[in-house]
Design a binder for these strands. Structure first.
Length: 573
RNA sequence: GGGCAGGUGGCCUAGUCUGGAUAUGGCGGCAGCCUCCUAAGCUGCAGGCCGGGGGUUCGAAUCCCCUCCUGCUCGCCA
């Protein structure tokens, strides 16, 4: 679909102001619109004031005198240096409702852009189950991907599997050498939870027994020398572990389009190509021991060590070297690459970008950082067992949701209860994580993670279910988008919120401000609840059809918001 | 020590990029609201030196400088 009515109105208002300003000789003014409480749009004249050499108040008055109602603009009035616009309500309401009815699940989406966007997310080491400390990654990545799709882009999500390096070798050694039953496996029947016991045990034995340590080192040496057998065995273990991780991700409605294996970039020679290309750059240098590095002091890398090492002294590649090959590969199949990364990757990501620049790669990945979720007692650690697994969080959330459903709906069959409980539990978890700006430090607390009230996923789901229930109970009506039947203040507010959805999707997607989405959903749901409490719908006589149409439209947009958040929209709960 | 990020009522949080009209919501607390469309709801009340200090400006939560607290980081680890 094309520009929404709301966006057209904004464009018209800005154009009108620009035109009025040009009549007083100001042409390059910096105009930005705000959405105030009492008007539909406001443009402050303070910045313009200096350029024009006129007080803001006078400019606002002057601008308003030049603007007459046209298009979607109903009025423009000056107040305290602002130009306040009101929209032609009838047009806004009618076109918004008609557009929602016409476009349904696509309402708010932008037309196809033809731009290929690659979103890499999750990419956790396949050495243990996903814990809550990293749970922001798949949820941010998946939500962003959903928003970008609605922004019209061709989006592919991708998981970069680290099947290279000491950690996976330790795991593989453990799985191959520690007898089944000799270590206590976790009781959850999933490969990631089963195998992590061998990873822990292997780590412990490596530290305690020099013989084990030597075996692991030998395995690592053979791996790096390209021993096909070792590489294959490590890959197999990683695949088994990944299987469990995929199940966890599926549990929170995350499915990735592609899994790319780090070892492939060694096997196909592309990592070696990166090394040889970097060696010939003027920033390259070699230490006495024979390792190669780039000196990045001219690239804004600060600190006592500006060197970025890209080969070991034995010539083998390092993680970031392979990541370079990976990014070059990504850009052969996408126009934009977005990396969702933990904040510990900030320096690495910067070095990667500098190296890409040195390699003459015309493009840079856009990094999105989040800070790790910690526990009140401190950082999570898989090895120390100070950890809350994502699987446990999901189970707990679904369990609690089940209790809530059972308490409210004794009439539902058991199967339906399970279905709703899963939707609600997962909704609470995803919403709670995505509602907060990613860079904010987050301390995990059960009562917050399992919040079902107020600013929560279930609150939005509840409104969706409520709207569905009303439509069902109405038992038939004819669609009516006549704005003259929707003049109550609650109806007006609700429709104005519905008209903003496209703008919200744009900033959540293009500007990667994913946390705008839950805020909007809450605003919409809250406005609906107020409308619901104040305005009778089913028994409302002449306005019945129009009000039911508004309920249907609200339901549609809410479903779109929930879908963008990767949260299911139950029809009853 | 250097770099990067966060600091907003008891708790969580929006707004900071692009300075502007009374700082957004939620949780918890208190007081109300189901003979009407799902009370996972609605209404009202209390609660704020926007970490602290300077500066720029007609105007600062927002920009600049200093400072304190928290997290991350400065590997021939991944």
């Amino acid at each position: 679909m094309n520009m929404s009515v709301r966006e057209e109105f904004e464009a018209q208002a800005v154009a009108a102001v620009r035109k009025a300003l040009s009549s007083i000789g100001v042409t390059d003014a910096d105009i930005h619109a705000e959405i105030p409480d009492n008007y539909d749009l406001a443009i402050p004249c303070f910045a313009v004031s200096k350029k024009a050499g006129m007080p803001p108040k006078e400019i606002a008055e002057k601008i308003c005198s030049e603007i007459s109602p046209s298009g979607l603009i109903a009025s423009a009035s000056p107040l305290n240096g602002y130009v306040n616009f009101t929209v032609k309500w009838d047009d806004l309401a009618k076109e918004t409702l008609e557009s929602i009815i016409e476009n349904g699940s696509e309402y708010g989406s932008a037309p196809k852009s033809g731009i290929r966007v690659n979103v890499e997310h999750t990419s956790t080491n396949p050495t243990g189950p996903i814990h809550v400390g990293r749970a922001r990654n798949p949820i941010i990545g998946d939500t962003l991907a959903r928003c970008l799709r609605r922004c019209g882009h061709e989006v592919a999500t991708e998981y970069y599997v680290n099947d290279v390096g000491k950690q996976v070798v330790i795991l593989t050694w453990g799985v191959e050498n520690i007898p089944r039953g000799s270590v206590a496996e976790e009781d959850r029947d999933k490969t990631d939870h089963r195998l992590v016991a061998y990873y822990r045990a292997a780590n412990a034995r490596m530290e305690a027994e020099s013989e084990v340590s030597e075996q692991i080192s030998e395995m690592l040496r053979r791996f790096e020398a390209g021993d096909a057998d070792v590489i294959q065995r490590v890959r197999k273990t990683a695949e088994a572990m990944l299987d469990g991780l995929k199940t966890t991700l599926a549990g929170i409605n995350v499915a990735l389009d592609k899994y790319t294996w780090e070892s492939d970039f060694i096997a196909d020679g592309s990592a070696a190509k990166v090394v040889s290309d970097l060696k010939s750059s003027k920033y390259a240098g070699r230490t006495e021991d024979g390792s190669w590095y780039l000196d990045l002091k001219d690239f804004g890398i600060q600190g006592k060590n500006t060197k970025f090492t890209f080969t070991r002294s034995d010539g083998t590649t390092l993680y970031t070297t392979r990541d370079l090959a990976y990014h070059i590969d990504k850009f052969t199949r996408s126009d934009r690459a977005i990396d969702v990364l933990g904040e510990d990757q900030k320096l690495g990501s910067k070095q990667l970008c500098s190296a890409l620049e040195i390699l003459g790669c015309g493009r840079m990945p856009e990094a999105m950082f989040y800070s790790f979720v910690s526990l009140p007692e401190g950082k999570m650690s898989t090895r120390k067992g100070v950890v809350v697994y994502l699987d446990d969080l999901i189970d707990e959330a679904v369990d609690r949701a089940k209790g809530e459903v059972l308490a409210r709906r004794p009439d539902l069959p058991a199967e339906k209860v399970e279905e709703i409980a899963k939707a609600v539990g997962v909704g609470a978890v995803r919403y709670n994580i995505i509602r907060v700006q990613p860079e904010k430090q987050l301390v995990f607390k059960w009562n917050e993670a399992l919040n079902f009230d107020g600013n929560s996923g279930p609150y939005l789901q509840y409104v969706h279910a409520r709207a569905c229930s009303m439509l069902k109970k109405a038992d038939g009506y004819t669609q009516d988008a006549d704005p003259s039947k929707l003049t109550d203040e609650y109806e007006v507010r609700l429709i104005k919120i519905l008209s903003k959805f496209g703008n919200v999707l744009r900033s959540a997607g293009e500007l990667r401000r994913v946390h705008m989405l839950p805020a909007y959903g809450h605003e919409l749901a809250s406005a609906f609840n107020q409308f619901y409490a104040a305005v009778p719908v089913i028994s409302s006589g002449a306005n019945r059809n129009a009000r039911l149409t508004l309920v249907e439209c609200s339901k549609t947009v809410l479903a779109n918001v929930l879908d963008s958040l990767g949260i299911e929209a139950p029809e009853e709960m």
